[in-house]
């Protein structure tokens, strides 16, 4: 891809992040008539309020507060947690790494299952295989994730005792046990994503197979295998990249439910705890990190798209 195109994408991403940081800051610190009061609640003494205002810098004008805050945030300092009195940044990043592990594994499993299934369904269009694959996909997407999660846990953990029902073990500490703990949540998330991706893959493959250039490739005398893998798949994959990037948005929000059910200390849970305990720096850090993750994923998806389809580069 051309450097100018890349620079433009990165610039746009930076711009997005700055706007998001302004929004996060405005919503958490400026908009509440008195952030100190709303943080401390009804029973706060005037001394406590004054101390907190001074600590948050609430006396300065809004733009000064923002610049001061943003300067620290963009150098990696999110402040001290009001709950644990520890720096917020490292904690949040650890939580994010666990969520990312969950998200990335789910997407990998999804791709590995959904892409071949979608292609097979398209190739067997209108036959029993197609109908069967579609039925299973619909089943996956029509159940809410907490139902899927419960059913899977009942079956695989409670009845068959194959997998632990809840908890998180770091892959670095114990790889095998880590994987076993990851399996149920990943399975639950994949059930939903597979349905999206498979259906997209199926309809795109069908469209591509009907196109003139596929006919041309066949009439050039290329074997069916080459036609499928070299000519059709690449084009059919393109919209899937976009779907995956959009699903990351769903994952970041929906992952809270999964993390709650399976007791995984990820970013979703961390943000929940921060909100319920009114831990302002943690809320800001959590929201910003989620937004940044989303922006980065979408930029990565755009880059992948540009690698697959050369027409994008000059747009």
């Amino acid at each position: 891809m051309s450097l100018a195109w890349l620079a433009r994408r990165l610039l746009l991403m930076g711009y997005t992040l700055i706007v998001v940081s302004m929004l996060v800051f405005a919503i958490t610190q400026i908009l509440p008539a008195d952030a100190a009061q709303s943080l401390l609640g009804e029973n706060a003494t005037p001394e406590m309020l004054a101390a907190l205002r001074a600590r948050l810098g609430l006396d300065a004008p809004a733009w000064q507060q923002y610049l001061h805050w943003a300067g620290r945030v963009f150098s990696g300092d999110f402040g001290i947690s009001m709950r644990t009195s520890q720096p917020v940044g490292p904690d949040m990043l650890t939580a994010l790494s666990r969520s990312l592990l969950l998200a990335v594994s789910s997407i990998l499993v999804t791709l590995l299952v959904a892409v071949p299934l979608g292609v097979v369904a398209a190739l067997r269009h209108g036959r029993l295989t197609d109908a069967g694959v579609s039925l299973i996909a619909y089943l996956g997407v029509s159940l809410p994730e907490f139902v899927t999660a419960t059913l899977l846990a009942l079956l695989l953990a409670d009845t068959l005792h194959w997998l632990p029902a809840t908890g998180y073990v770091s892959l670095l500490e114990d790889f095998g046990d880590g994987i076993r703990h990851l399996a149920l949540p990943v399975l639950t998330i994949s059930m939903i994503l597979i349905a999206h991706v498979m259906r997209m893959m199926r309809s795109e493959t069908l469209d591509v197979l009907k196109s003139d250039y596929i006919r041309a490739a066949r009439l050039k005398g290329l074997p069916e295998r080459t036609v499928l893998f070299r000519h059709a798949l690449r084009n059919a994959m393109l919209p899937v990249v976009t779907i995956i990037a959009l699903d990351v948005g769903y994952l970041l929000g929906g992952i809270i439910v999964i993390e709650e059910i399976f007791a995984i200390p990820g970013i979703g849970r961390a943000l929940m705890v921060a909100i319920t305990t009114r831990d302002l720096p943690s809320i800001q850090a959590g929201a910003l990190i989620m937004a940044a993750t989303y922006a980065i994923t979408n930029t990565l998806a755009d880059m992948a798209y540009a690698l697959l389809d050369r027409r994008i580069r000059y747009d």
């Binding site: 196109s211 003139d212 250039y213 070299r230 000519h231």
Partner: peptide
């Protein structure tokens, strides 16, 4: 040789 050269070539190769 096909009628419409713009659709007979694969756009991603």
């Amino acid at each position: 040789v096909f009628q419409d050269p713009s659709t007979a070539l694969n756009p991603t190769l």
